[in-house]
Design a protein around this nucleic acid. Structure first.
Ligand SMILES: [Mn+2]
Ligand SMILES: [Mn+2]
Ligand SMILES: [Zn+2]
Ligand SMILES: [Zn+2]
Lengths: 143, 143
DNA sequence: CTTGAAATTGATAACCCGTCTCAAAAAGAA
DNA sequence: TTCTTTTTGAGACGGGTTATCAATTTCAAG
């Protein structure tokens, strides 16, 4: 019946392995989160206020951070806020961000990834993660 | 006698063009800043506390932001803090960051830059700036 | 179905980092 | 030196996130 069966499974796996419990709040927040590409805790707080007016902001932060540990989300510090990126049904990706309207486009480019590896190797590093953001104007905002 | 003659000139130019004044604090902070590759306001505050115990933290923030406007520095939001990157005698560059010891290596790669342009064009974007950070372990931290 | 230990929640205080405020001090043109 | 403008330093303030803690919920065991 419920959507997001697979991701709910990923969450329950993680909970089981860390003696954490499955709660109404965690289910509710996961359902809402999976409908988004990127969202902040505050945005989610207001969005869920209709369904459950008593859901606390701290719970949202805690739960989004839990999703990161479970591999469903990825936190990106973006300006002053933290964006939680839904990575459950996509692999790694980077972002194009319009400085005019805030639009975010996701992309993947293996050539860039390969060159990053080369740079790292040349400097004796082993890459664990990376972050690539391109800021500019989208076609609409350029007029 | 004093080092950093060229950069002091860049600062004075900027001050002149914006009816700002040359102060003892600005000179002191620029001298300290140019000895670093990257530094936070807080670090600089403690470092300068010996030379001038009355120098205020707000003044450091204001001055480092001024350096950004003058093209001597570039702010990078890094985790929870802001790093000020000394770009006075280098052009644009990106960073390799060791998650073990915090070491930062600067690099430049035109192939990556060119591919970034391609990605942007393909999506109808015009790039203004970008940010590329590679996180991993340096040779020493990998054992 | 109970029971009870352990985890979770929600309200809100605390925190961190950076900016704002404002009276006193300094800069610098005349 | 004079006088206007800018700058400074101390601390208050603000936004975003985490910590605290008593009350509630989960869930495994009986
Ligand atoms: Mn994304
Ligand atoms: Mn640098
Ligand atoms: Zn746009
Ligand atoms: Zn290292």
């Amino acid at each position: 019946m419920s959507k997001h069966v697979k991701e709910m499974g990923v969450l329950k796996d993680h909970l089981g392995k860390h003696q954490l419990k499955f709660t109404r709040q965690r289910e509710l927040i996961l359902d809402a989160f999976l409908k988004q590409e990127h969202i902040t805790a505050e945005e989610m707080y207001h969005q869920l206020a209709r369904k459950d007016p008593h859901l606390g902001l701290a719970t949202i932060y805690r739960t989004l951070n839990l999703f990161c540990e479970a591999g469903l989300a990825q936190a990106r510090h973006f300006g002053t806020q933290t964006q939680y990126d839904n990575i459950s049904h996509k692999g790694h990706h980077d972002h194009l961000i319009c400085t005019g309207c805030g639009k975010i486009v996701e992309f993947e480019n293996c050539d860039i990834e390969r060159l990053q590896e080369e740079v790292a190797t040349r400097n004796g590093f082993t890459i664990q993660t990376h972050r690539l953001e391109l800021y500019g104007l989208c076609s609409r905002c350029r007029h």
